[in-house]
């Protein structure tokens, strides 16, 4: 029994670690969508963040500098989306795909010299007071700084969004740009900030993956995590608190995939690797049933985006 509990807790904390990059993107994209803008480019921003973060960490020797650079890279690339969507009124899905391809291309192109490099990691909570906590210490010890930062972002975002005046306007912009305009505010600064924040979080997510979680750079290493995150935003109902369980879905499927492989379950690792896509997709299906019935908190401005599609 005790070994079962240990096993389960190990799985849960492994899920938390592998969910962190996805969680960061879900949080950022939820904020972007709350302002009425959808950005599929997060996948590309995440890749560029991962590459930049790894490259800077590798050159400077300071992984924290890498994390900062990754955030900058994410913001910079998200500005392409901002210019196309806010400046040129381009279709948001098309612009997102353009950013996705650009980020993938840039990261593959400039990442070549860094493939196979070694970097210093951000460390973890082992050998701090946390790992001395009885029973839980062994699980809390391997937690890394990006996990903590991302978890702390949840209450911060929630307070901003639901407890501040700016957060209120941010949300109202997503519901109806007209309302924001009629109140004498331009929706553009809010949407610009929302896209930039999405860029920041996806760049950070890239660093969480490349600098922290794997300490490695491989072309296309995000493998759709950004796109899974866009789907999970819907599961999370655009709510930062629900983002955690939603992202844990991905993390748990990935942890389960790795766990089953290590147990030597006679299922092909390639089939098991479909779990992190199929499980979020299945939950998305369930989630849509609720969404259809209640509206489920989708920012009304997004409905326009999805329907005026083309």
């Amino acid at each position: 029994m005790e070994s079962f509990v240990t096993e389960l807790l190990t799985l849960l904390f492994a899920a938390l670690r592998s969910a962190t990059p996805v969680l960061a993107v879900v949080l950022g994209e939820a904020m972007t969508q709350r302002s009425g803008v959808i950005n599929l480019g997060v996948e590309g921003q995440m890749l560029l963040g991962a590459m930049t973060g790894f490259a800077v960490a590798s050159i400077s020797g300071d992984p924290w500098l890498g994390v900062l650079a990754a955030c900058g890279a994410g913001i910079a690339l998200s500005m392409v989306h901002a210019i196309l969507v806010l400046g040129c009124r381009a279709n948001q899905i098309a612009s997102g795909v353009a950013v996705l391809i650009l980020g993938g291309g840039l990261s593959a192109y400039y990442g070549i010299p860094f493939v196979g490099n070694k970097i210093d990691t951000l460390g973890n909570l082992n050998h701090t007071f946390v790992s001395d906590i009885p029973l839980l210490g062994q699980f809390l010890g391997p937690i890394t700084p990006t996990v903590l930062i991302t978890l702390l972002a949840i209450p911060a975002i929630s307070i901003f969004l639901f407890r501040t005046r700016t957060g209120l306007r941010w949300r109202s912009t997503g519901e109806s740009q007209e309302i924001t305009r009629n109140l004498g505010h331009s929706p553009v600064p809010y949407q610009l900030a929302a896209i930039a924040f999405g860029g920041l979080m996806s760049g950070f997510a890239g660093a969480a993956l490349a600098v922290d979680y794997t300490a490695n750079w491989v072309e296309g290493m995000t493998a759709g995590r950004g796109l899974v995150a866009v789907g999970l935003v819907i599961v999370a109902r655009w709510n930062p608190w629900y983002a955690l369980p939603a992202a844990l879905l991905f993390g748990a499927s990935e942890a389960l995939n790795l766990k089953l492989q290590s147990w030597g379950v006679p299922i092909s690792p390639y089939l098991l690797a479909t779990l992190p896509y199929l499980i979020p997709l299945s939950v998305l299906m369930l989630s849509y049933r609720g969404l259809r019935a209640s509206g489920g908190g989708m920012p009304a401005g997004l409905r326009v985006v999805f329907q005026s599609a083309r």
């Binding site: 353009a98 950013v99 840039l106």
Partner: peptide, 23 residues
């Protein structure tokens, strides 16, 4: 020339077309 340059050029083309079309 790395293979990824084809992706970058495609993305640039896409971005330019989306931007210019709006003018």
């Amino acid at each position: 020339l790395p293979k990824a340059s084809a992706d970058i050029l495609q993305a640039l083309l896409f971005i330019i077309v989306l931007a210019v079309a709006s003018l």
